[in-house]
């Protein structure tokens, strides 16, 4: 019993730095700017004026939609590319397989800051700057996809070969085996990939800054930086209101679906 109390106490204490920033963000977004640095945990007079200000200063609804649809498209695309490549690297034998895998893995080692300039040049020459294409194509096919491929490969490697043998006996070809047998089994791994990818795209900061230049094309993280007054001074409470609106829906979805969420993540094939 004593042990239990101690454990709960420890957990509660450890929780503080994880929960407090979010709490502070939400409550401070309802404070007038003069109260931001006050010690009070709750705003003395909650105001939602900052929230309407967010929409007045930026096309925030449009930006929300941009972030959302880009993240969804990237997630679906990455799932497809990663499942195909992960499956092939894990289950199909073909000449040069290992070399090609290493080639693909290089992407895991490269910070995006390193290659952003050549990539920008590429998209500039294609006339695709200030469109959402670079934010969609590069994550699906480029470096950000590599972790997903790795996760899928690790999952497929652990799949018992007997299942495929049986399917082959039934006359299924490779594509059929992949689509009918392997893919349905890979649901947890795909779930993990989906979560990783969605978060990655949702949080992307450097790339939107680089590629997008008009406010109605912006994504949320980028939009958050735009709430400044005439002299370039930050409008903290408005920024916090916008930040709250970007964070809270995701948190709510997470709390509702957290079991599938975390169990999906736990299946990232790290057992291998």
């Amino acid at each position: 019993m004593k042990r239990k109390v101690a454990l709960y106490g420890l957990l509660c204490l450890l929780c503080v730095p994880f929960v407090f920033p979010t709490w502070w963000m939400v409550t401070s977004s309802m404070k007038p700017i003069s109260e931001i640095f006050s010690e009070s945990l709750l705003p003395s007079e909650p105001t939602f004026a900052t929230y309407s200000q967010v929409f007045r200063m930026q096309p925030f609804g449009q930006q929300y939609w941009n972030s959302l649809y880009i993240a969804v498209v990237v997630t679906l695309g990455t799932m497809a590319v990663a499942a195909l490549a992960g499956y092939a690297f894990a289950r199909i034998r073909f000449p040069g397989q290992n070399v090609l895998f290493v080639v693909v893995l290089t992407g895991l080692l490269i910070p995006s800051e390193v290659t952003i300039v050549p990539l920008f040049q590429l998209f500039q020459s294609l006339g695709l700057t200030n469109t959402h294409w670079p934010l969609i194509i590069v994550p699906i096919f480029g470096a950000p996809c590599v972790l997903a491929i790795f996760i899928m490969r690790q999952f497929f490697i652990a799949l018992p070969p007997e299942l495929e043998e049986a399917a082959r006996m039934d006359g299924l070809g490779r594509a059929g085996i992949f689509y009918r047998v392997a893919l349905p089994l890979a649901r947890p791994a795909l779930g993990a990939v989906a979560i990783f990818t969605f978060l990655h795209s949702w949080n992307l900061y450097l790339e939107p800054i680089v590629y997008l230049s008009t406010p109605d094309m912006f994504t949320l993280p980028q939009a958050l930086t735009q709430f400044v007054d005439n002299y370039g001074g930050p409008m903290w409470n408005v920024q916090l209101a916008a930040a709250t609106m970007t964070a809270v829906p995701i948190l709510v979805v997470f709390v509702l679906a957290q079991r599938q969420f975390i169990e999906g993540l736990a299946h990232t094939g790290v057992k291998g």
């Binding site: 920033p21 979010t22 949080n203 900061y205 930040a243 709250t244 970007t246 964070a247 957290q258």
Partner: peptide, 10 residues
Amino acid sequence: FSPVLVSLVA
């Protein structure tokens, strides 16, 4: 786990 979901900039 919740901070993982809060956007980095925020």
